[in-house]
Simulated scan of single mutants.
Amino acid sequence: MTSLSILDLAPVPSGGTPGDALRNTLDLARRAEEFGYRRYWVAEHHLAPGVASAAPAVLIALVAAATSTIRVGSGAVQLGHQTALSVVEQFGLVDALHPGRVDLGLGRSGQRKAEFAELAKKAPPPPKPARVVDGLLIPEAFSFAALAKSPLFSLYGVLLQQPGAESPDFADQVDEIAALLAGTYRSPEGVAAHATPGEGADLRLWILGSSGGQSAQVAGERGLPFAANYHVSPSGVLDAAEAYREAFKPSEVLAEPYLVVSADVVVAEDDETARELASPYGLWVRSIRTGAGAIPFPTPAEAAAHEWTEEDRALVADRLATQFVGSPRTVAERLRVLRDVTGADELLVTTITHDHADRVRSYELLAAEWEGGAVTR
């Protein structure tokens, strides 16, 4: 039976504060544990007025302390902004107090500055047309070329890295983290380093990715579990899953590939109510893709007041078309299609509504409906 897990961005609601968002996260984590979700991951976002999840290790420690059994983790640490040692020490500290519950999810975000710089200079390639694969929409790929030119994007490297700092290759950083955890790290000169806390920590390493590129390759070649991104880059999910499985080599961690797939979800008692609760989502995605940074999540009334242009609609079309919105039965049926087409072993659900109670209720209704009311661990 396919498990359900949660990815939380600690969204700041319109009219609310980061403190409200973080208190909501802790409450939702406790409720998710009651509902039977398998794991509770938090994202890493920066310079976004509408997202409070800027320091995953800190937030994970708070979530772990507020819960008892649910696994907690990152989805994902942006390795381009940190060293391998700093990541191992931070997550090793959380594991020391909550052993055996921590997932360390790693992503390439922050390492692709050169790629995005080139992207900003070039005309985007001709898009692949949208298609439907066994009932699952694979939309036309969104071009990030315009986003790469935004002034806010250029600030990331300035504010998140020391002057002149260069991020190592992603695969090398993953290997350094694994070696520091195992106590086998040696510098090129043969000097040993031992992370305290961190060495010997009972952390599960994960790789997250949006395409069939390096992230999927690294996860497969090292025999690590992999999370493919349908909720932010839905066009690449099948390529990511295929690349991961093709690259997979059995390891001490896994004998076979283990794939998690993410999805944006809003559930309510009926389809109409769910659509109303989800109606601000497009305006929120627009704020991200225009390069302004995620705005506080609007109310349905605030979203309805926005005057949409054709350019606006094109910016968010793939995200709106692949959001799972409706009654428990409607959403569960669509999620089973996502599971079956991708071959996912687990689904990672992310839900954002303006009112916290609606978000909690969405997760509760989905848990009750999924596989006849059982969210397996």
Rank of each mutant, 00 (worst) to 15 (best):
M1H: 12
I6G: 11
D8G: 08
P11C: 01
A21Y: 04
A21E: 09
T25H: 10
Y40F: 13
Y40K: 09
W41A: 04
V51D: 10
A54N: 02
A55Q: 07
A61E: 00
G80F: 00
G92N: 12
R101Q: 12
S109M: 10
G110F: 01
G110M: 04
G110A: 08
K121T: 05
P126A: 09
A130I: 08
D134E: 15
L137R: 06
K149P: 02
G164P: 00
P168Q: 08
D169Y: 11
A171M: 03
D172I: 00
A178N: 06
G183D: 06
A192R: 15
A192L: 14
D202Y: 07
G220S: 01
F226V: 03
N229Q: 13
A247L: 08
P250I: 09
S251T: 05
L254V: 05
L254F: 09
L254R: 05
P257W: 08
L259P: 04
A263W: 07
A268L: 08
E272Q: 15
S279I: 07
S287P: 07
T290L: 15
T290I: 09
P298M: 13
T299V: 11
R313W: 09
L315K: 01
D318T: 15
R329Q: 03
G343A: 05
E346D: 07
T350N: 14
R361C: 10
Y363L: 12
L365I: 12
L366R: 12
L366I: 10
V375E: 12
